[in-house]
Write a protein that binds this DNA or RNA. Structure first.
Lengths: 220, 220
DNA sequence: AAAATTTTGGACACTGTTGTAAAATTCCTT
DNA sequence: AAGGAATTTTACAACAGTGTCCAAAATTTT
């Protein structure tokens, strides 16, 4: 039905793979929107543009579907988080601008994208019924990267940009501030606009630097 | 409707009222734990210690049950929030200690109690299906009190305790910081311990005052 | 073009839940 | 203790969703 750009030459099971992805995406949306148990398999199949049988053929029953979605979301979120962490400013001229840009990237590409949203929603909502989910998050997912982020802040402190006692705490406060009043927390599940993200990030970084910025490097 | 401490002589429908409350509590827990649609009415009835019929007799079907729970949770949360806001420090000797105590009260009695937990969970999870829920939150629930909180911070600034540009933003950053790494966000739905609350609140207030505290009144 | 494979739509039995209605029981009033 | 109200028990019909099977249609491969 919807081959994206598989016009020229595709591997043997390209169609199946594409359909599989469509199902996973539809299931992801359904799980986030209605909960894992609430939405019917039929609805997911319709949303994916396939028949119910295809769902059972390519993936399996609800439980396997859930696991497949979690796996994909975890993998993707972890990867994009790593990518963004790699862009953490190292020796910026303007620490405020650099941190703001970093915060915007983090919010837009990790926390507010469809996968990040799905991951946090699923963890919050299904953790009590699937304890392994939270464990996976800690071991293989974004949860394992907190020390890396803390280390970035420690390095920033060592280079004289900020003054902190506890890098881990600083990292958590940084994230709390840049997420402070994202529309996500309030209204429906709509993803915030790029503009809202930038505004929130800038305000959060400003407060963060008021608290932790070195006196000499605080500009503005 | 709900007489509070009618221990000595009970009004005629005291038993019904008590059962009604038990049902509402059980439904609240079930809705938060499993979602509004997932848990069976039977399970709620058993958890409340009544039969399924009594649920239908005293309250009604699932939808009425949901509305009753939302109404109760909203009312209670709003009331306890008001109570705690009333204890906002006015002219404290030690601004840090006073704000920390306030943060502890706010976390413990509003955000981390069963009703606050239920309210935020239900709003996040069911907002898309019951838009009136979020609207109610804004008009009658805790949402309507943000300006009041912002005003408290404005007053604190006027009295020279803190230095802020935007009271509303300061209020949001204050809450973001004191909620920063509450165990709630991570693990299962268990309520955080008093100790964890105090620690998180203290750390949040400390950072808040590093950012916004007046130079002269910042102690330690 | 024919064969092989995948996808589809429909039918099916099955389970679990719902909301209601009647009896049976318990509880309170008098 | 008897009468009456409330509550629980039990039963029931209706319904929605699940997972499976199969034949027909569509699609790919030979």
């Amino acid at each position: 039905m919807n081959q994206i750009d598989s016009s020229i030459v595709e591997p043997p099971s390209a169609r199946a793979s594409s359909k599989r992805q469509a199902i996973l995406d539809a299931a992801k949306r359904s799980f986030v929107r209605d909960g894992v148990i609430a939405g019917g398999i039929d609805a997911i199949a319709v949303e994916a543009g396939v028949s119910r049988q295809t769902v059972y053929n390519l993936i399996g029953d609800r439980d396997q579907l859930f696991r497949a979605v979690v796996e994909e979301v975890t993998t993707r979120s972890s990867a994009s988080l790593m990518t963004v962490i790699a862009t953490f400013p190292s020796r910026p001229d303007d620490i405020q601008a650099a941190l703001t840009d970093f915060a915007v990237r983090m919010l837009g590409r990790c926390l507010c994208d469809i996968d990040g949203q799905a991951l946090s929603t699923l963890i919050k909502r299904e953790a009590h019924k699937h304890p392994e989910l939270f464990k996976t998050w800690e071991e293989y997912g974004p949860g394992k990267d907190w020390p890396v982020i803390a280390a970035q802040f420690a390095r920033l402190a060592r280079d004289g940009y900020i003054e902190i006692d506890d890098p881990s705490l600083a990292a958590r406060h940084f994230f709390a501030l840049i997420c402070s009043d994202l529309p996500t927390d309030k209204g429906p599940c709509a993803l915030p606009t790029e503009e809202a993200i930038r505004k929130t990030a800038a305000a959060g970084v400003k407060t963060f630097l008021r608290a932790f910025g070195s006196r000499q490097s605080t500009s503005a």
